[in-house]
């Protein structure tokens, strides 16, 4: 990843993600739980899947722009309005991040950053 990409990603974080975090805090919105809940009998949840486990893509739906659009659609279906507002900037960030997927790129990743997986 180039320093330009880094800057773009850092800018996206500061301009969009941090404010959304603060807005979520004000509204009491959380995307996941972080600890025990004694009120619950069980922690088993329904399956979270977009498509019942399998999704077919035709060639035209395979590029990054199409996948970003699918993500936007997914948020819309779930009424996650604040996230859908990220969509244009996210697509711009994706375009900046896109590059030929060379075999050596993966070397930049630490092998156990689970949130990156």
């Amino acid at each position: 990843m180039s320093s330009t990409d880094d800057q773009a990603a850092a800018g996206f974080f500061a301009e969009y993600l941090l404010p959304l975090k603060r807005a979520n805090e004000r509204r009491g919105v959380h995307y996941f739980t972080t600890g025990a809940d004694k009120a619950k009998d069980s922690y088993w949840e329904p399956i979270a899947s977009r498509n019942g486990g399998i999704r077919s893509l035709n060639a035209a739906a395979c590029d990054g722009a199409a996948l970003i659009k699918q993500l936007g659609d997914y948020w819309t279906e779930r009424n996650q309005v604040q996230l859908t507002r990220l969509f244009p900037a996210l697509e711009t960030l994706r375009q900046g991040a896109s590059k030929p997927a060379g075999d050596d790129q993966q070397a930049v990743l630490t092998d156990f950053i689970y949130p990156l997986h």
Binding site: M1, D5, I68, L116
Partner: peptide, 15 residues
């Protein structure tokens, strides 16, 4: 870690 995540996810997995 977000810049790394963005590169990994948007640059590679989405491609």
């Amino acid at each position: 870690i977000w810049p790394l995540a963005a590169a990994s996810q948007l640059g590679q997995k989405f491609a």
